[in-house]
Design a protein around this nucleic acid. Sequence first.
RNA 1: GGCCUAGUAGCUCAACUGGAUAGAGCAGCUGCCUUCUAAGCAGCAGGUUUCAGGUUCGAGUCCUGACUGGGUCACCA
Length: 592
Amino acid sequence: MYNIPEIISDATADALKELYDANIAMDKISVQETRKEFEGDYTIVVFPFLKTSKKNVGDTAQEIGEFLTKTYPAIKQYSIVKGFLNLHFDDRFLVDQFKVISFQKDYGKQAQKNEKVVLEYCGPNTNKALHFGHVRNMMVGYATANILQAVGYKVHKVNILNDRGIAICKSMLTWQKFANGTTPESEGIKGDLFVSNYYVKFAEVHKQQTEALLTKGLNPKDAQAKAPIQQEARAMLRKWEAGDKATLALWEKMNNWVYAGFEETYKRLGVDFEKNYYESKTYELGKAIVAKGLKSGLFYKKEDGSVWVDLTEDGLDEKILLRSDGTSVYLTQDLGTAQERYKDFKMDQSIYVVADEQNYHFKVLQLILQKLKKPYADGIFHLAYGMVELPGGAKMKSREGTKVDADDLLDEMVEKAKIETNKLGKIEDFTETEKATLFHQIGLGAMKYFILKVHPKKRMVFDPEQSIDLVGDTGPFIQYAYVRTQALMRARKGKTIEIEQIQLEESEKNLIKLLDIYPAKIEAAAKNFDPSEVANFAYDLAKSFNKFYADLPILKGTDDKTKNFRLQLSQQVGAILLSAMTLLGIQLPQRM
RNA sequence: GGCCUAGUAGCUCAACUGGAUAGAGCAGCUGCCUUCUAAGCAGCAGGUUUCAGGUUCGAGUCCUGACUGGGUCACCA
């Protein structure tokens, strides 16, 4: 099905062919909604056609206008302002277009394609709790997966757990030293937070010891490396790599605490993964790939035994792939993980949702895989999102305690939703469970929308002092518009409705025009990997609906024909709001 | 320093990928609830789109150069 701007583009192409015998590229034809300070519904920009018409702007516009009004009865009249041809549509055409939309099942979604996508998101380290940056990652990843699914891709959502290395050893070490055998259960603390606390504890002790060494005259770098606790952590890492049983057992125990904690947060956020990958399991495979590349001469070994790849011809640097002691690095692990994934899914595309500070890493990763002639190399796409900053440009760092903990933020948002909702006093008849569900929906809706309305690649600022609004351009605003549509549906009592032709008001036309382009919006969002296009569309639609709702009577003071049409329009708006917000992973309540 | 990236109202974000007089929300000020939910609606005020050139019918958008911020260039992940 074509939307109205597409229909107009086609018609314009016909006009150009008929009038000037010219085939013009479709992307030269620009059709937009007429700006509200001018008369008309849609506007064609005629400047690009002047070369083919060989006439001045006014004449060209007039000829096209004449042709269109004569050929298409739906176009009632036209007007020309400068180089812009404004078309006025017959209401009947818009009503018919709306009818078509109403009858569509799964409006906005496309048929299944035969293309598989693996989308990796979240990617936490197992030594610290999830923070706001992870939340952005998860929101962008989850929404993008839904959007790709909506346009027909088969999407596999996967997670990568960075479960090995020196960092987790730090938490393990301080737990051994200071925890006296306590556990998340015994302390009643979420597992990831529990382990995270010992990571912070390590940083504290390390700082003290470093400072002590500094007073003895060591330089800062040496002091950090020679601090006893740092040495112990390194020793522990060596034991882990050597497969020491006790170390592995401790590692497993603490990681499991963390995973249990993560699971809780995933569940609250409503995200899920089809499969988990663990670096501890893929790094060996990565090493094997490196060994093969070494044999084929693609990589080379330095005197100290470390393995490198030279990417200077491609404008990049030399990159290390294996340390001199034979242990693997970040890149090695990602090579292994990619291979493992291809074995599992035979995907056409791999999307990595990872912060933009990793841009260089992914360039290198893809280039190496291309040089290795891996079939999945070209399908790699790094969906880079900007870092979340605190006001004043401060960065969030776990170690320095300047991060916003994901769970704290969720609690805070739900609490805020509760306070504001109770203030309004509209849900006194709800049960406690219903109330709890609603507060969760509103609090999370606000947070998710706050993140998703911003273009992923842009840095965003979050001020923990100010919290997230519930009024204006927010999640609850859209939820509220939906709730209004649902109240109307309850009043309608499920009666089926026949749509008849009526005279359209301005705010009704606006809604039809918005509904008309919803599928195109999803398609653009999928093409650009940009959920914010869906978020902003939902806001526009909600805003237009609120205006419609305020301007026009629906149930009372209308004749049957008008009432039926407005009810049907409201139902369709509700359905599309629900569809769009579901793509974003935001729930909509029936009442609020 | 090299490369990458961004700079739009006091603040947080838009701008259909080059189209008309740059739009929303928050914060500030006015109005609107005895008729469908005021988490709403209408209005006022707020801009030399960092700056300087260029490309063209037309530039917030493309090019060049500055300025400012961020990222990256680890035998960390």
